[in-house]
Write a protein that binds this DNA or RNA. Sequence first.
DNA 1: CTGAAAGCGCTAACAA
DNA 2: TTGTTAGCGCTTTCAG
Lengths: 341, 341
Amino acid sequence: MKKVTILDIAKELNITFSTVARALNDHPAISKSTKEAVKKTAERLGYRKNKIASSLRSGKSNIVGVLVPSLDVSFFSSVVHGIESVMNQHGYSILLYQSQESNRKEDKGIETLLNSRVDGIIVSIAINRDDNTIFEEIISKNIPLTFFDRALHELNAPSVTIDDYRGGYMATEHLIQAGYRRIVHITETRKLSNFKERLRGYMDALKAHNIPFNEDLVLKGNLSLDFGKDCVKDLTSRGVLFDAIFALEDFTAMGVIQQLKAQQIKIPEEVGVIGFANEAFGSLVTPSLSTIDQQTHLMGQETAKLFLAMLQEGSFYKTAPKKITLDPLLIIRASSKGPKL
Amino acid sequence: MKKVTILDIAKELNITFSTVARALNDHPAISKSTKEAVKKTAERLGYRKNKIASSLRSGKSNIVGVLVPSLDVSFFSSVVHGIESVMNQHGYSILLYQSQESNRKEDKGIETLLNSRVDGIIVSIAINRDDNTIFEEIISKNIPLTFFDRALHELNAPSVTIDDYRGGYMATEHLIQAGYRRIVHITETRKLSNFKERLRGYMDALKAHNIPFNEDLVLKGNLSLDFGKDCVKDLTSRGVLFDAIFALEDFTAMGVIQQLKAQQIKIPEEVGVIGFANEAFGSLVTPSLSTIDQQTHLMGQETAKLFLAMLQEGSFYKTAPKKITLDPLLIIRASSKGPKL
DNA sequence: CTGAAAGCGCTAACAA
DNA sequence: TTGTTAGCGCTTTCAG
């Protein structure tokens, strides 16, 4: 089975291959009859347009690169799901990369994407990103770049994020309004600004409600279920008084819940708990976990739309970049129903 | 900023572009000094190899297509995670498609992949797949094709699956050994063979333990949390006697658990429950959900390895295809600890 | 060890 | 409405 090209179709019909090309691309200046004939023989011969050749010639690949930390984190796979769906409807394919939270792999990923001559790049950066040069290269080459969730805001590129500050504020305020007063916040040691924003929201919410900020109530580490457990152990063993915990993320919050249960501490009567991210398990566990929803599907769609708009504009970095901030959604479940009075 | 090609590097160094090309590809017949000079100026000029051009010329894209139903299902995103990681280590990129369980989109996806001249295709088919022609085209074109989890076994292509029959058998036998006797099985109406296999395992396990098969205890529908709830409602309202439920999949099992709890039916004392898939929430819910683990990470890695082996062979469909079957893992948790005696 | 030259399959400007 | 022609940027064979 040898390869069928437009030349084969042309020979078959005694016309030139450029007519064939035009017919296949529905060029307006081609008669209906030739178009039909061409399409029929194309089908008969099992012709498949070689996208590589057309990309090389036209300078457009109809492929966009998507680089995320890991598809094993449901937040990212969910957003990528949304991005792929929308981009696909608009005729684009997704070239996928995972940085695995490694800066080196992230750089390598971008390089491959650049070498592959993708039409644009969508990224959510690694947790420890500290060097922007590769991203500056994308921009200086005038290739469309859009960030989602984890953005480099100092760069002149559009982004779709949720308002982490507000999320942190909402979570904390909700706990306060539910009647909790000594509220612990578990945050991250690593660089990513999203976590710093949630912390800032936490602090401001306390201030707004005249609750003094207490440094002992802020714990830092690397997010994970086990870290959540450790935090509770640490707090109780040190005899710190607290009546609620706002964890930066749901798995950590789940660790908190499990450890509190293990130590027979009642949720929400003795300690209220709220997480962040609205993972699938939150509504299924007992007590169900209050959390902040990040609107993953909407984020995927908005990212794709913003990116498509950028593709159509042409001059990508002339004007101030559009930064879309989605509202976090407070999901109140059983774990923060308020303390026993 | 204009594009830099090997020609620019050549001019800069007063050598021909073919020498530059060889130097960049570490061709053995190029002197160390030229290689170094070339690489240095390449870097200085900001050269990036145009993969599209090399793909067109060499006939190799170093891209593999991956087509899955949906990344929003953690099973698939987890396997894709594994596939991407391994393939990436071997210099391949992933072109990603989602069929959204639609045959039409699946066909379109394969076509785009074919047009994109990927070096091979990895697929997990849509739930209602009924026509194999597009897959036959892949094989007839001698393009490497590998299935995972959901395979078309009648085709002469390799696959990595788990033994669904054994999974169904194990789940059922576990319930029997835990002391349950009137075991309900919830299965799917749709075509996919995996579910039929689980059902077969269920039936054979009953037979092996001399428990008569009772058609009233097999419920059919479309998997979902709500369907799980409906099943319990249906069984109790019809007054069917049962003391355990084996659901084809974890979300359905979760619906079962929620509805049993809502009706004050004790788990596992009055009714034991087991699911299938080992979703993240299973260990976090109360009672924790027994299930069958499908070894998603291993499946991703094995799929990638099998695929890579295929790529190296060259003659892809001469010999009988290698079909790897992974062992399902029984995960016993609280939901099936045995009935109250 | 390096150069010359052909061509992968298509797009698109220019001609007719 | 169709044909002619010139590449896109690289790989690769054949010469030297």
